[in-house]
Amino acid sequence: MKLKTSYKPLKIQLVLKDMKMIDIRNNVDVSSSTLAKINKGEPVSLLAILKICEYLNCGLHEVVEFVEDSDETETKL
């Protein structure tokens, strides 16, 4: 089973806190390319995720999760 990163929990946190990605961009020391990777669902450094967690005052599981890669399961069928 192959896993991929999902930032769905981050999107949920932003909605709950009435925030947008621009708030992270303006208040957290992460690059715009890192935020672009998050929007594309690509892996980013643990340090970047830690900075986002600290800003949002939440845990790692409330920002990122690992889900089964559906592309991987489709190729096995």
Score class of each variant (00 low, 15 high):
1 M>E: 14
2 K>F: 11
2 K>E: 14
2 K>R: 15
3 L>A: 10
4 K>G: 05
4 K>H: 05
4 K>W: 04
4 K>F: 03
6 S>K: 10
6 S>A: 07
6 S>C: 08
7 Y>A: 05
8 K>Q: 12
8 K>A: 13
8 K>C: 00
8 K>P: 00
9 P>I: 09
9 P>W: 14
11 K>S: 02
12 I>E: 13
12 I>L: 10
13 Q>I: 04
14 L>F: 01
14 L>H: 01
14 L>D: 04
15 V>R: 09
16 L>N: 13
17 K>H: 12
17 K>S: 10
18 D>L: 05
19 M>G: 09
19 M>I: 05
20 K>G: 03
20 K>M: 09
21 M>D: 00
22 I>Q: 07
22 I>H: 01
23 D>P: 02
23 D>V: 06
24 I>R: 07
25 R>F: 08
26 N>M: 15
27 N>S: 13
27 N>D: 12
28 V>N: 07
28 V>T: 10
29 D>S: 12
29 D>L: 08
29 D>M: 05
30 V>L: 04
32 S>T: 08
32 S>D: 06
33 S>D: 11
34 T>G: 01
35 L>A: 04
35 L>Y: 03
36 A>C: 04
37 K>H: 08
37 K>G: 00
38 I>W: 01
38 I>Q: 03
38 I>M: 05
38 I>T: 00
39 N>V: 02
40 K>Q: 12
40 K>D: 04
41 G>C: 08
41 G>Y: 11
42 E>R: 10
42 E>N: 06
43 P>R: 06
44 V>T: 06
44 V>F: 00
45 S>V: 01
46 L>I: 14
46 L>G: 14
47 L>V: 14
47 L>P: 02
47 L>R: 14
48 A>P: 11
48 A>E: 09
48 A>S: 15
48 A>Q: 10
49 I>T: 07
49 I>F: 09
49 I>L: 11
50 L>W: 09
51 K>D: 08
52 I>F: 05
52 I>Q: 02
53 C>G: 00
53 C>V: 00
54 E>A: 08
54 E>V: 08
55 Y>V: 10
55 Y>L: 11
55 Y>F: 15
55 Y>A: 07
56 L>G: 06
56 L>I: 09
56 L>F: 11
57 N>G: 13
58 C>N: 05
59 G>M: 11
59 G>P: 00
60 L>F: 15
60 L>G: 01
62 E>R: 15
63 V>R: 06
63 V>F: 10
64 V>S: 03
64 V>Y: 03
66 F>T: 04
66 F>R: 15
67 V>W: 12
67 V>C: 04
68 E>V: 13
69 D>S: 05
69 D>W: 02
70 S>D: 08
70 S>T: 09
71 D>W: 02
71 D>H: 13
75 T>P: 02
77 L>M: 14
